[in-house]
């Protein structure tokens, strides 16, 4: 088994060798490490992408808009770097769409890291697959393939507002149950049991 640090170093060096600048190669190293740690096929997809990177044409997107469409497939790395670098401005857009991003697995770790930067969950829909990025702590998904994913048609990205998954009633019910561990205080205990006085106008 390869260690994650070996994966990071080799992905970085290979990306530099394929023509990416060092700073971006560093990002790729960290990203592939992240993918492999989360159980997604990072090395497999990067290896295939770098094989064709020099001979095929890919669109480098610099400024990301609400809707991004290109006849030439987008480079997932440059799209990801731009996404990461511009995420604090983009989150105001609520939703972003891409069409024709190649090797979308390689785009994902940028979204995962972006989720941590803005402190919001990010929902990614690629065709009929969904990925929920949880502040770079985990990725929740209905996708389990370990194979190479060369092309995506439609990508939809949503910045999810920080809100709870339960309603107020469910919360109150649970809270009420939790109250059963509290102790009813007598007047004497109120005075003795805590540090400050009952009135502290000094």
């Amino acid at each position: 088994m390869k260690a994650l640090s070996e994966i990071d170093t080799t992905a970085k060096r290979a990306s530099r060798a394929a023509g990416f600048p060092w700073g971006i190669a560093e990002e790729i190293g960290k990203n592939i490490r992240l993918l492999e740690m989360f159980g997604l096929p990072g090395i497999k997809n990067l290896n295939q992408y770098l094989k064709i990177y020099k001979n095929q044409k890919f669109q480098n997107i610099s400024l990301i808009a609400k809707s991004n469409i290109s006849k030439i497939p987008y480079c997932p790395i440059i799209a990801g770097v731009s996404f990461l670098d511009q995420v604090t401005i983009m989150e105001e857009l609520d939703e972003i769409n891409f069409e024709n991003v190649s090797f979308p697995i390689l785009f994902m770790p940028f979204l995962s890291r972006a989720s941590e930067i803005i402190g919001k969950k990010i929902l990614l829909k690629i065709d009929n697959k969904e990925f929920l990025f949880n502040f770079n702590q985990s990725i929740y998904s209905n996708y389990s393939s370990k194979e190479i994913w060369e092309k995506s048609n439609k990508i939809n990205i949503q910045f999810l507002e920080n809100k709870n998954l339960f309603n107020e009633n469910e919360w109150q019910e649970l809270y009420k149950l939790s109250e059963k561990i509290f102790v009813e205080e007598t007047e004497e205990l109120k005075l003795k049991g805590a540090g400050a006085g009952t009135i502290d106008n000094d």
Partner: peptide, 17 residues
């Protein structure tokens, strides 16, 4: 912003970091 600067200057990304 640094984000906008990097669009044309990613060759120096490692130094910015």
């Amino acid at each position: 912003t640094i984000g906008n600067f990097l669009i044309e200057n990613n060759d120096l990304r490692h130094s910015v970091r």
